[in-house]
Design a protein around this nucleic acid. Sequence first.
DNA 1: ATTTGCGATGTAAACGTTTACATTATTCAA
DNA 2: TTGAATAATGTAAACGTTTACATCGCAAAT
Lengths: 303, 303
Amino acid sequence: MLKVQASIAVLEYKPNRVAQRLRSTSKKTKLLGLVIPDIQNPFFVDVVRGVEDYAYQNNFAVMIGNFGQDEKKEKLYLDILQSENIDGLIVAPIHGKDKGVENLVKKNIPVVCIDRGLTDIDVDVVKVDNEQGAFNAIDHLLSLGHKRIAFISGNFKIPTYIERLNGYKKAFVKHGVPYNENLVFARDTDYKSGFEIANKILELDDRPTAIFSGNNLLTLGALEAIHAKSIKIPEEISIIGFDDMPWSISLNPPLSAVRQPGFNMGRKAAEMLYDRILNPNSKKEKVILETELMIRKSTIRIE
Amino acid sequence: MLKVQASIAVLEYKPNRVAQRLRSTSKKTKLLGLVIPDIQNPFFVDVVRGVEDYAYQNNFAVMIGNFGQDEKKEKLYLDILQSENIDGLIVAPIHGKDKGVENLVKKNIPVVCIDRGLTDIDVDVVKVDNEQGAFNAIDHLLSLGHKRIAFISGNFKIPTYIERLNGYKKAFVKHGVPYNENLVFARDTDYKSGFEIANKILELDDRPTAIFSGNNLLTLGALEAIHAKSIKIPEEISIIGFDDMPWSISLNPPLSAVRQPGFNMGRKAAEMLYDRILNPNSKKEKVILETELMIRKSTIRIE
DNA sequence: ATTTGCGATGTAAACGTTTACATTATTCAA
DNA sequence: TTGAATAATGTAAACGTTTACATCGCAAAT
């Protein structure tokens, strides 16, 4: 063994990553940024795990920022990560015209968007076929005879929810059922919104026979509202949610849901980011993954 | 306005955090490390949110490592964070004799332990009264007339689970019911373990009338196993879990649980870490927070 | 007008690496 | 044994700050 190598071993020398990152020009410093809207949402936890899985295998460290749909907070994390000299960034932009993310792309910092793309600029993105996923859910409900189907959505500034709304509408068209815009409600993407919107829906004069909720947390909030009013699922109201969870089967009742492959999305995004770092000028890639409709016990046929 | 200040504003100059961190001696660089066992566990997500909440308010960035109870992975993250020149670290050590964490403490790097302490060394820690929490759960079950109460635990190398076991035993003593060690099962802390152990329990000749599960994920796994066998909760078996979740009320049935204040634990840990950074030689602090017993519908009196 | 005081600006070294090159040591063939 | 080739080691500058100190400019006081 060489003398230098031997000393490295003896002294347990570990290079200082800060100094490395400061000096290094070749992108070998190995730090990824990951900026997500809501770490309480199990879907994004899966994404984080996917990213982290790839990062770990490839000796990257990951710096995570959770912005909770707060635009200021997102901006701060973007600034921080940039001034941390990250090699690249995986981000779910707060909305389709996110200037903060746009700027990073323009500065030629490797960026891949996850769950949602950017409308005004060409960027790598890995997402799910939201329109098809929502279509499948509503198609299922309509096939079961439901006509009044409420949609608890997140904010329509987020492209994901626009796409899900499109799928929702398309299914109505297919079944020749008129679409009623009074039945779509959009607010935040958290538990509380789901709870509150569901309460409003349940108090409607002509109560819908089914609810389609736009994400994990909205579903869970809606469930609490329904149970609080002792309304029976699925006998009195059907519900199907976007996003599946490992424990969906243990909910009351076992929840029908549109499954997104969160872990794979995260992993794929990390892979793509790695490619982008190595190859900054290659064509931007759009990866659209499939959803899967999980039919369990929260949806039922009505006459 | 001064000329220099003016130029800073005009050019939108943002200091490079990497260079700052490299040079700075005063601990003003503002980077915290956070190392947790399982980001899929909603309890730790709450902890992360608490830490992040404090960090955001105080302009710290947080670098998160999720080690999934993999000792090598934990070691790697500890090394990485150290060579990132973090100002301090919040960590849930993989077990009570975690040499990696011990070393950091010895090197005088500010460390606060969360959820679990270290047995061989004096360190700041914020945790919950696990013994009391488990005692309350088992006391509740025994008061309801249960005598055969299985315990689905995590690995007993983790101090948390030893403490929970102690609470379990203590409750038996109080009620004068003999404690049966064949009813305590310890493996990993994840969903799968909960599922598998519950399966084993449910196939026991003299099937327990109640289950106490050691964490969130174990509970959820156990629920799936019970439902898969179409065993009715609470009529045929009662279950109570350590860790509450926002959606516990929407589980089938609404879950009785021992609530831990995860968010507050995270926040408190971040505060303590900040103090420790500012004041490296002050006396180490132990903060023990209270749990709360949430009685819902998964536990029932038997004759 | 000159001095004093203090805020603003300037300067150089240092943090621990990488980069690019120069130098020294070792190996192997002739 | 010599020389060439190659491996190992040495050197200096640079990355973008902070630190500590020196200098400058300007207002108020003399």
